[in-house]
Design a protein around this nucleic acid. Structure first.
Length: 729
DNA sequence: AGCACGCCGACT
DNA sequence: GTCGGCGTGCTC
């Protein structure tokens, strides 16, 4: 009997080992082992037991030891992880590594073990008398243990370098080490504090979801901003907990998790485990353990939380399911939203995808299964939806990117005591530093991109690679004065401050909200009305509530209108609707102004006439007509190399290899250089595989990727495959 | 990815 | 004379 083991390496295969010496016949897929690997010793995950290997017996080594007494995952989660390695065509070892907290990847025990130091008989009888008078540190430590502080975690703060003293005391036979496995604490109280009264639509949604407990069903909870989606989640989760099962809630990245956790913990007594980027390794492992043991009734986390084991899964929620951060954009490029569906299916539990602006993929799914669509078309508390209108930039004067009608509207809203939100999807002062004399502009030395002017730091920065340079007031080629061209958040801030000097203003973007907790503090100030004007980027569109904002101005809607990426218009519509949703959430109706040079553009017209649903309807028809997802499936082969020709040679060879497989329904587009060909000094190219369904794509990749690995050109490039790519360029 | 082995330049 | 540059080969 042999062991097929996944090892954290970019190689797309399992490695066969003989069982370890301590093998007692009990080994199951999902247990970790220490294995020798080349000259290293690594943690591997047992994937399957095998009767024989493709390799000669002489090449096989024995695994060293078993780490876990039982598998880390239940069968369903194990299958999901394994399946996703196949679906995304990513090396299985890296996939399993991605599914585990760092500490488990490095061999830490999966079960929390508390170390306790207890007095031996000798220690109890002789006590400090056994120690020399100079052994001050040992005396202190022993005294602590004698006074009843026995847990190692508590003893750690008694003196400096505690482990040294503990080891010495143990060596002298005064104390001994015990391992304590803490009892699993079952969730005690699942009651939801003060459930709000539901609207009829919320009631239907809630009853539908809870009625599907115990079966697999993919619900789309399509609720306009402010319609009370969260209340539906909360009450569904309460019922999930009442059945003795756990709920897994996925949220987008960006500092949203703490907010939601706060909202949840204010309403639930059940322990909540959270998983997000702000946590350290120990905290992550704790959350993982509490989820797996069942101690945490609710698990809230970002993308990677989809791999958290659950003792008794009952419900999965994906909030803001359209958010692109659910798709990992490097390495193992999985979609946590799609995996949530795959996982729910394996566990036979319902999954709720919630959004005010669902992705076209999810809308297409809901069209195929109309009974799974749960709509919340109205705002709670009878708040009116915001009124949207366009400002034609061609026929209106503007001051630094802000049109006269927009300024006029701002003035009116401010006079009436409202708050104003200016949305511009561009950080920094200006996107270009230009020389009017000779035409020079500041370029990134490592990317095909212009450097953005940052006034605050007096620097030029590349938003693609992070390169920074001092600001160039004089043109480096002709020594004439340079000029920042275009607008970013910093410049809008400056302009608005000049025009409305009496109105307190705050800028909210990644640069101004660097420090931990800064965003929360600022948002509090906004909602206490200490701020009148907000200028900011995407961050403003992500879930934060601004009940006092009555006017939203979208300063540059045009960026997404003519992009070559077929998803750009979907994203633009989502951003406009999401940012509009920030306006008029209280009793006063909101106003939304969208500045554009293309007021006749069909996308904008649709959006303004019929809202997101009408836009989506039209966009879906367009996608169907053009054979783009969700009416086709894609896989993108990317390659990068220090020389442009190297990447292209590989992609050409890859193209040939794919054609040789002649899978007729798969079309190959490219190879072509990426639109920003050079990034971080690497030249990038790509080859798109397009098929009417996932099946033929899968067949292609199964046969294709092993061939690519063997290509001599493959050694000279870094290549990767992106299944269901979100960003095509 | 690591980590080794393996042949050619500037220096304790 | 060595230390070390990163090319290329391998990991059950």
């Amino acid at each position: 009997m042999l062991l097929g083991i996944a090892i954290d390496t970019p190689l797309r295969r399992l490695f066969d080992y003989r069982p370890p010496a301590d093998y007692d016949g009990k080994l199951e897929p999902g247990q970790r082992l220490w294995v020798p690997f080349g000259r290293r010793r690594l943690v591997g995950v047992l994937i399957e037991k095998r009767a024989q290997s493709d390799l000669p017996a002489s090449k096989l080594r024995a695994a060293e030891s078993v780490i876990d007494p039982v598998p880390l995952f239940d069968r369903e989660l194990f299958d999901l992880i394994r399946w996703s390695a196949g679906y995304y065509h990513h090396p299985p070892g890296e996939v399993f590594a991605a599914a585990l907290p760092t500490l488990l990847r490095s061999g830490q025990p999966a079960e929390a073990v508390e170390i306790e130091w207890r007095l031996t008989d000798v220690g109890r009888n002789e006590g400090a008398a056994a120690l020399g008078s100079r052994a001050q540190r040992l005396r202190t430590m022993l005294a602590a243990i004698m006074s009843g502080t026995t847990r190692e975690s508590a003893l750690a703060s008694v003196i400096a370098r505690p482990s040294e003293a503990l080891r010495e005391l143990a060596k002298r036979g005064l104390i001994e080490r015990h391992e304590i496995r803490p009892e699993i604490v079952a969730p005690t109280d699942s009651a939801l504090e003060s459930a709000l009264e539901l609207t009829p639509e919320q009631r239907v949604a809630l009853d539908s979801i809870t009625g599907s407990f115990g079966t697999f069903k993919t619900w789309l909870l399509h609720g306009v901003t402010g319609s009370g989606k969260t209340e539906v989640y909360l009450q569904a989760i309460a019922q999930c907990l009442a059945r003795g099962t756990q709920a897994l809630v996925l949220v987008p990245e960006i500092a949203l998790t703490p907010q939601l956790v706060q909202r949840f913990s204010a309403r639930f007594h059940a322990p909540i485990a959270t998983v997000h980027s702000g946590m350290n390794d120990t905290e992550r492992l704790d959350a993982w353990r509490n989820a797996r043991s069942g101690a945490a009734g609710i698990v809230i986390g970002t993308r990677s939380a989809i791999f958290t084991p659950l003792a008794k899964p009952g419900l999965i929620v994906v909030d803001e399911e359209h958010d692109p951060s659910f798709k990992q954009q490097e390495g193992f490029r999985y979609s946590a939203r799609d995996l949530a569906i795959a996982r729910a299916q394996r566990h036979s539990v319902p999954v709720v995808l919630g959004s005010a602006t669902p992705s076209l993929e999810t809308l297409a799914r809901a069209r195929r299964e109309p009974q799974t669509l749960l709509s919340l078309p109205r705002r709670a508390g009878n708040a009116e939806p915001p009124r949207m209108s366009l400002i034609d930039l061609r026929h209106n004067a503007q001051t630094q990117g802000i049109s006269t009608p927009a300024l006029q509207a701002m003035r009116e809203h401010l006079e009436r005591g409202g708050q104003v939100l200016l949305f511009i999807n561009r950080r920094g002062y200006a996107p270009v530093l230009f020389c009017p004399n000779c035409g020079w502009s500041a370029q990134c030395p490592r990317c095909d991109a212009r450097l953005t002017v940052h006034r605050r730091t007096h620097e030029l920065a590349c938003h693609h690679c992070g390169t920074q340079q001092p600001y160039a007031a004089k043109c480096p080629t002709c020594s004439q004065p340079t000029k920042p061209v275009g607008q970013g958040t910093e410049r809008i801030e400056e302009t608005i401050q000049q025009i409305f000097p009496q109105a307190p203003l705050v800028r909210i973007d990644r640069d101004s909200m660097r420090r931990r907790g800064e965003l929360e503090t600022t948002l509090d100030r906004v909602n206490r009305a200490e701020v009148k004007i907000l200028v900011g980027t995407q961050i403003l569109t992500k879930g934060h509530h601004f009940p006092l904002v009555t006017l939203v101005v979208v300063l540059n809607a045009d960026q997404g209108l003519f992009s070559s990426d077929f998803r750009a218009s979907e994203r633009l519509a989502q951003i406009i609707v999401q940012v509009s949703g920030r306006a008029g959430r209280a009793e006063r109706p909101g106003q939304v102004l969208i500045q554009t040079e293309y007021p006749k553009h069909p996308l904008l017209a649709r959006l303004l006439d019929g809202g997101y649903d009408a836009f989506a309807e039209a966009a879906l028809r367009e996608r169907e007509h053009a054979h783009w997802p969700p009416y086709a499936r894609l896989a993108l082969l990317r390659a990068e190399a220090p020389q442009p020709a190297t990447a292209m040679r590989f992609l050409d060879a890859a193209h040939q290899a794919a054609e040789a497989l002649s899978i007729r329904t798969v079309r190959l587009l490219g190879p072509a250089p990426a639109p920003m060909e050079r990034r971080l000094g690497q030249y990038r190219g790509q080859l798109l595989a397009h098929a009417p369904a996932h099946g033929p794509l899968q067949r292609l990749m199964d046969a294709w990727l092993p061939k690519l690995e063997a290509l001599p050109e493959a050694k000279r490039v870094r290549w990767s495959i992106d299944v269901d790519p979100l960003e095509l360029f």
